[in-house]
């Protein structure tokens, strides 16, 4: 029987150009016991960090300058296996959610990010990740 990875061992990358939003998410993750969290304010830097840190989960904002979260998710799915993406956005219209899911995101959360919603999403994804 496979052993599910605990939150403390999950490698998570947070990608959001908003300093405020990133700090809010980092605080939520810290309070939940996530210890292996990396952050960046750009999708371009995120790709570099993904190669270096090999995160299990990427939490990415959709609206970012230059490369959007949607484009980032497509690149992640084209270049890496077994990385789950949780998309966040202030827009939560049906077409935005559908576009996020179509690009390969595992979940969508609208801003402001609520602690329970984010942790529930991470725990659900973690059930698919085996302890290394």
């Amino acid at each position: 029987m496979k052993e599910i990875i605990p939150l403390s061992e999950l490698r998570i990358l947070v990608v959001d150009d908003s300093d405020f939003s990133r700090s809010m998410i980092l605080q939520i993750l810290s309070e939940a016991g996530c210890q292996l969290v990396t952050e960046t304010n750009s999708a371009e830097h995120a790709m570099k960090l993904i190669r270096e840190k090999k995160p299990h989960i990427v939490i990415a904002d959709i609206v970012m300058p230059e490369i959007s979260g949607i484009e980032l998710t497509t690149k992640i799915n084209d270049n890496f296996d077994n990385i789950y993406v949780i998309m966040i956005s202030s827009l939560s219209q049906e077409h935005v959610v559908l576009e996020a899911i179509s690009s390969g995101a595992s979940d969508f959360i609208s801003k402001p990010v609520q602690k329970n919603q984010l942790i529930e999403s991470i725990q659900k994804i973690a059930q698919n990740i085996s302890k290394e």
């Binding site: 908003s18 202030s90 827009l91 939560s92 219209q93 609208s110 801003k111």
Partner: peptide, 9 residues
């Protein structure tokens, strides 16, 4: 950003 997103949505 959050307010506008919520208004639009």
């Amino acid at each position: 950003n959050i307010l506008l997103g919520r208004l639009i949505s």
